[in-house]
Write a protein that binds this DNA or RNA. Structure first.
Length: 602
RNA sequence: GUCCUCGUAGUUCAAUGGAUAGAACAAGAGCCUCCUAAGCUCUAGAUGCAGGUUCGAUUCCUGCCGAGGACACCA
């Protein structure tokens, strides 16, 4: 990766140049203004204070040293003059930079050589699906906890974020060579089951539930709450059912198992449509047997105490409210389970890191959880991180209220999006067969939903806006899919035009023929892809990838509109097709990391 | 009261402490005898307020104002 190469070069050169100085943190970044170069570094400015020297002077010194050591452009001229063509060519191939400049107040700017850009194109065409991947995470295990719906309740747009962000992070880390374990920590235990079991016993219908699990369970739930209003005793009866369940009463366990199984069947449908995969679905109930030991360990390590009959972990040290791990009635909580889960993931999965993709609302809770884990001494081996995200707000910018029936069901969103996409295909490309239209509608519809979420910084609240979500223009999934489909169409036409088969289509294109500015800009942008993926993993922010491929597609569309491709001279056409192919590959890889599919035609 | 997010163009969003704050939608003007117009080009338009740290702040710190959310027996 270029940024790392530059960093290494600077490290070495500054080390040589200014001995006995500790090199402070510096960055190698992409300047916003293209005129400044492809990469720039602030190293001279951060050194200025330490060396007590003018940053511009330092920049010049570094620049000159690099020119001598790594950028033998002057040697090259010399060799060419001497007629040593082979050696000159070798030098060129090694040349990363074509120009290094210094700019006020002390930036060092690097312009990457065309040779290097061409080399990168070849690499993309060769690596294909692997372009952008690496082994950065070799031998590291990361557990990602995402989706985690509550059994018997419908998934709504809020769950969408955890599910989609989680899956995307999963893809990204995997691409970077980590061992990734996706775990769906479902809410399949706890007090809501008492109510549900009670309701099921009195009003439930097995057949109906089997046919329509979540919907029927929701009805039971709603009915229970309605009846409670006139009959307060039900609360107590439900509590008894919960207790019986926790005491492993046969009948209740049987009902519970049935409800869980049927719920999962419903979720599975949604996961399949969305292309979500988990390595494990270990619900809260899975950890039930381990809870006693958690309480015991807390007591042994003297971090827990009794308070008002309950057991808490005091977190004053962290300036946090106490963490309740056992209720007065002896029952355990979500907190207890989550502690057990950390231990399990550490012991059994050998996790180096656990990511919790859970909404921002639970920030305090996770602080408490992580702090408790630290008190237990567990955090030495495993790093815990709450990947929080903003909420999905209603169109008025308010939280969607379940009580007011404002929640938007995920199923409905999916259905609506695909339907609309269908209409748009009919209109835009009526020539496609019905089967093709259906496929396009599905891929576009789902892509839009995901992109709408993933193209945005995780932390900002998403205002739920049907128009925006279902907009297939501008910065949207279809924009990217469209660029890809166009390239695919070009390739096909190119094949037909020159009667080529797939194998030799890209046989030795001459990238020296790519001389237009826009072509160079695309090539420069392609260079960044691997860096973007690493950034997005570091920040746990898939939106950086979304942003990147949008920019790439935008550059490409510009190129496509301004430059003849097939209609140019044969060798130029070949080079341009190869460039297009590299763009397509990169778009595809990027979209796939977001969990979005591409289309050959649309 | 404590804590967590967030305040950028009419709207929805970008900007790893950098050099002229970017897009999309909406508005206005253009581009299909030419490779898919779900596209392209051009125009107009924004950092809540006040301090501080820094060579340099939309970004970091403090205070204020505004929005949303969480704060022991739910998950």
């Amino acid at each position: 990766m270029v940024n790392k190469e530059i960093k290494e070069i600077l490290d070495k050169i500054v080390g040589d140049l200014y001995k006995d100085i500790k090199i402070p943190d510096f960055v190698v970044e992409w300047p916003k203004q293209k005129e400044h170069g492809d990469y720039s570094s602030n190293i001279a400015m951060v050194l200025a204070g330490k060396l007590n020297k003018n940053p511009m002077e330092i920049s010049e010194e570094i620049k000159n040293k690099i020119n001598i050591m790594v950028g033998p452009s002057n040697h090259n001229i010399l060799r060419q003059a001497q007629g040593d063509k082979q050696q000159a060519q070798d030098d060129i191939n090694k040349n990363l930079f074509v120009k290094i400049t210094v700019a006020k107040p002390g930036f060092i700017n690097f312009r990457i050589s065309d040779q290097y850009l061409r080399k990168n194109l070849c690499a993309i065409l060769k690596k294909k699906n692997e372009f952008g991947s690496s082994d950065l995470g070799k031998n590291k295990t990361i557990v990602i906890d995402y989706s985690a719906p509550n059994i018997a309740k419908p998934m709504h747009v809020g769950h969408l974020r955890s599910t989609i962000i989680g899956q995307s992070l999963y893809n990204i880390y995997k691409y970077l060579g980590y061992k990734v374990i996706g775990d769906n920590h479902t809410g399949d235990w706890g007090t809501q089951f008492g109510k549900l079991i009670y309701a099921y016993k009195y009003w439930g219908d097995k057949k109906k539930i089997k046919k329509n699990p979540i919907e029927e369970m929701t009805k039971l739930y709603v009915r229970f709450h309605k009846e409670v209003e006139t009959n307060k005793e039900l609360e107590e009866l439900a509590r008894k059912e919960t207790k019986k369940l926790q005491d492993k009463n046969n009948e209740n366990i049987k009902i519970w198992k049935f409800l869980v199984k049927e719920s999962l069947k419903d979720y599975k449908k949604i996961y399949e449509i969305l292309g979500i995969k988990f390595d494990y679905v270990l619900g809260e109930s899975f950890y039930d047997d381990m809870l006693v030991n958690v309480i015991k360990e807390c007591a042994e390590k003297k971090i827990s105490s009794k308070s008002e009959g309950a057991i808490i972990v005091n977190l004053d040290k962290f300036n946090l409210p106490p963490f309740l791990i056992r209720k007065t009635d002896g029952a355990y909580l979500y907190a207890t389970t989550d502690l057990a889960t950390i231990k399990y993931r550490e012991d059994k999965f050998r996790a180096d890191k656990i990511l919790y993709v859970v909404s921002n609302e639970q920030a305090l809770y996770f602080q408490q959880l992580f702090s408790s884990s630290e008190l237990l001494g567990w955090n030495d081996k495993v790093k815990l991180e709450h990947i929080k995200f903003g909420m999905v707000l209603g169109e008025m910018g308010k939280k969607l209220s379940t009580r007011r029936g404002e929640t938007i069901k995920l199923e409905d969103v999916i259905k609506k999006s695909i339907e609309l996409a269908k209409k748009v295909v009919e209109e835009k490309n009526p020539k496609l067969s019905n089967k093709e239209k259906k496929g396009v509608a599905r891929t576009v519809g789902l892509g839009s939903i995901k992109y709408n979420d993933l193209s945005q910084n995780r932390l900002t609240d998403i205002t739920f806006d049907w128009d925006k979500m279902l907009s297939f223009e501008g910065n949207s999934a279809p924009y990217l899919q469209y660029a890809y489909a166009r390239i695919n169409s070009l390739m096909k036409k190119y094949n037909a035009l020159y009667k080529l088969d797939r194998i030799n289509i890209l046989d030795k294109p001459d990238f020296n023929l790519l001389k237009e500015n826009i072509e160079k800009n695309i090539m420069r942008h392609l260079l960044k892809f691997p860096e973007v993926i690493e950034n997005s993993a570091r920040e746990n922010s898939p939106h950086l990838i979304a942003l990147y491929i949008y920019e790439l597609a935008s550059l490409y569309n510009n190129f496509y509109n301004s430059t003849p491709i097939l209609k140019s001279e044969r060798n130029i056409a070949k080079a341009r097709i190869a460039l297009s192919k590299s763009v397509a590959t990169t778009i595809k890889n990027g979209l796939n990391l977001l969990g979005i599919d591409v289309l050959e035609k649309m």
